[in-house]
Design a binder for these strands. Structure first.
Lengths: 213, 213
DNA sequence: TAGATTGTTAATCGATTAACAATC
DNA sequence: TAGATTGTTAATCGATTAACAATC
C-alpha cells in the first residue's frame, strides 16, 4: 500500500475511528454507520470523517453510510493491524514491567489488538534471564540478533533519559523504524524512522498551565 | 494571570522551551540564549519561538537574546510550576504503581519538577491501607474529602477503560480540573476541565501505519 | 421515487514562516 | 557605531468546515 503524503493529523484519527468500529461490532448489532455517528463517537466532525476516509478509497454508499465490519477491516488493513505486530521493549524498570503486563492483558482480552511485546531488553546483568509475563530479559547487545530472529518491527523505549539516545541508536541500527519513547528527552533519528512520544512530564507540565483559570 | 485565548499548540511548546532552559541552567554556564538556539534544542523554528513567547510578554533584548534564568523563571510562572502541584492518582494497578515510583524518582532527582503525587485511590478493598512509596491507598469514595484536605489540583487516571468515565466524573465532582488519562477511552468532561490523553494503544496503532513504508 | 448520505470542491479558519523595522 | 537579534506584521501554508452534486 502507498498513499504517499497522508498528513500526520489524518493518521492520528484513523485509530480513533477503528476503535469506535471495533466497539460497535463487538457490543452492538449494527450493520451500518453514518459519518455523522462515527464522528460523534470519535469526537470528530462528520465532514472530516468523510474527508479522512476518502484519502484511502470509497468505503461508503451514498444515502446509506458505511458498513461497520467492512470499514473496520479496511482500517485494520490501512493501519497494518491485520497481521500481528511484534514489539521489543527496552528498559525493564517499573514502568517497562507495568507496560509489559498491560500489553499482555490487552492482547488477551482483545483478540483484535494485534500488537504484542515479544522481547525484553535491559543493561542490568542482574536482570538477565529473569522473565516478566513469561518473556525473558536479555542484554541490549543481543537486540539486533533477536529483532531479526523474532521479526520485531516496533520498539518501546523505557530507559532513563540519559540513556535514551544510545538505546534508540541501537534500535534503529537493528532495523526498527517505529518507536514509542517514554524517556523525557528529544531524540534524533534518521529520515524514515518514526518516533511517537509518550512524555508524561511534558503532559503534566502542559496541564499545569490551565490550573488557575 | 490571564491571557485568555492562547492556542493549545502554543501551550504544548512551552514545557519544551522550559525543559531546554532547565537543562542549560543546570549543566552549562550560559547566561544568554537566542531564539535560534532555543528553537534548535527544542525542535521548533526560531520565528515560532519568538512568536510563542511574545504572547506572554517581552522577555528578550534585541541584538542580545533571552537571559536563560530569567526566561526559565517566567516560563515556570506562566505554567504555574513555581509552586508545588499536588496530584491524586486513581487506579493503583501495575501502571499506577509504576507511575507513582516514576514520579517519586523525578521529584527527588529534579528539584524544579514541582508536580508530586500525594494521594492514591483504588476501589479494591484489599489494597486499602497499603502504601506505595509511602503513600497510602484509599477508597475512591474518600476522593473529594482528601482532595480538599491536601489541596490536590490534578489527577492521573489509571483505571480500566470501563471504569474511567465514572472515576473521572468523581474526580471532576471533587473540584479537579486537570486530568491525565491513561484509559483507552474517550472521556466526557464539562467545559473548563482539561483532559490530556496518554492513550498508549492509540499511539502504537498510529505507529503501525508507518510500518511498511 | 423521495430522502438520505456520500465523496469532493470551494471557502474559511488557524498556524507557521518570512521579512524587517526597532533597538540593544 | 556596526552587528545581532528581538518583537511584530504580512505572506504562506495547511487543515478544517461548509456546501452540494452525485447517487444509493
Amino acid at each position: 500500500m502507498r498513499w504517499k503524503k497522508i498528513s500526520d493529523a489524518v493518521v492520528r484519527r484513523l485509530p480513533l475511528y477503528l476503535r469506535v468500529l471495533e466497539e460497535v461490532s463487538r457490543d452492538e448489532d449494527r450493520k451500518l454507520m453514518s459519518s455523522q455517528e462515527l464522528g460523534e463517537r470519535a469526537g470528530v466532525s462528520p465532514a472530516l470523517v468523510r474527508k479522512d476516509l476518502a484519502w484511502f478509497g470509497e468505503f461508503g454508499k451514498q444515502g446509506v453510510g458505511y458498513e461497520v465490519s467492512y470499514l473496520r477491516d479496511e482500517l485494520r488493513r490501512i493501519l497494518n493491524l491485520d497481521e500481528k505486530i511484534r514489539v521489543a521493549l527496552v528498559g525493564v524498570g517499573s514502568l517497562g514491567q507495568a507496560l509489559t503486563r498491560y500489553n499482555k492483558n490487552r492482547t488477551e482480552q482483545d483478540r483484535s489488538f494485534n500488537i504484542e511485546i515479544v522481547a525484553l531488553f535491559d543493561n542490568d546483568p542482574s536482570k538477565f534471564g529473569k522473565t516478566i509475563e513469561g518473556i525473558a530479559i536479555r542484554p541490549v547487545s543481543e537486540l539486533a540478533q533477536v529483532v531479526k530472529e523474532l521479526g520485531v518491527q516496533m520498539a518501546i523505549v523505557t530507559v532513563p533519559a540519559d540513556q535514551a539516545q544510545v538505546v534508540v541508536d541501537a534500535v534503529v541500527q537493528a532495523g526498527i523504524r517505529a518507536i514509542l519513547n517514554f524517556a523525557p528527552t528529544k531524540l534524533v533519528v534518521p529520515e524514515g524512522v518514526h518516533v511517537a512520544s509518550a512524555d508524561l512530564s511534558l503532559e503534566l507540565q502542559r496541564l499545569a498551565y490551565y490550573l488557575d483559570d
